[in-house]
Amino acid sequence: MPDTIDSHALIARLQLQPHPEGGYFRETYRADQRVMRDGSNETRAASTAIYFLLCDGAHSAWHRIRSDEVWHFYAGDPVDVHVLDASGTLHTHRLGNALVRAGTAFQAVVKAGDWFAAECRDASGAALVGCTVAPGFEFSEFALAAPGELQARYPQHQELLARLA
């Protein structure tokens, strides 16, 4: 049985805002400590964290960032995090309450540079997750996939890539 959540009440309670890739979010942590990326003179926060809510049929569109991202499940319906690695292999991590749902995990890792997208397993569902990024997330290092870009590169995954574009 799913952990039913009132997504509209949660948006107000957690002060969530629409996210450019879909869903709602709010940054909850940005480390004061700064780190320098290898091969760069720019510094970044050592780590950042957000709440991220998927509801009302929204999904997280295909995108990538330059840092590792750890997804954490908090409440609601299971979430599939689809990851395309550098070789074009598709991995799907199912987040959910692992204490009561077989085949789910509380956390999943997306490696820096991999393309990924996420959706509630049930399109009518809602789920609250969190994402921790290290080095910290910066919108300047965020890239949404251009329309058709991934389908042309990975035709074996065309249906999923198009559906979550």
Rank of each mutant, 00 (worst) to 15 (best):
A86Y: 03
Q151L: 05
W62F: 13
Q156M: 13
N97P: 02
D122F: 05
F106Y: 11
Q156I: 09
L90P: 10
W62T: 14
S124D: 02
Y154M: 02
H93F: 15
A143H: 13
S47C: 00
R13Q: 15
D85Y: 04
H93S: 14
L54P: 10
S87G: 07
A108D: 04
M36F: 09
S40V: 12
V83I: 14
D38Q: 12
L14M: 14
I50F: 02
A45T: 06
A9M: 04
A118K: 08
D56N: 15
R94Q: 12
T92E: 10
P20W: 01
W62N: 10
G136N: 02
R66W: 14
P2W: 08
R26Q: 10
M36V: 14
D77S: 11
A61M: 07
D32C: 00
W62S: 12
T89V: 13
G88L: 04
G125F: 01
E27Y: 05
P78N: 11
A145C: 12
S7D: 11
V35F: 00
T92Q: 11
D114L: 00
D77I: 05
H8D: 15
H59N: 10
A117T: 06
A118W: 11
F25L: 06
F73E: 05
H59I: 12
A123L: 02
T89P: 04
Q15F: 06
P155T: 05
P135T: 03
T48D: 00
Y51K: 04
S124F: 00
D80H: 15
L128N: 03
A46D: 00
L99A: 13
P20F: 01
E69R: 12
A46Q: 03
E42G: 09
F137E: 01
C55E: 10
R26E: 04
S140E: 06
A58F: 14
T48R: 00
T43F: 07
R94S: 09
H59C: 13
T89A: 11
K111A: 12
M1Y: 15
D68S: 12
E159V: 15
A31F: 01
G88N: 11
G148K: 04
S7I: 03
P20R: 02
Q158L: 13
F137Y: 08
H82W: 12
G130S: 04
L54N: 09
I65S: 10
R66N: 15
T92F: 05
G125A: 00
R30N: 05
V81K: 08
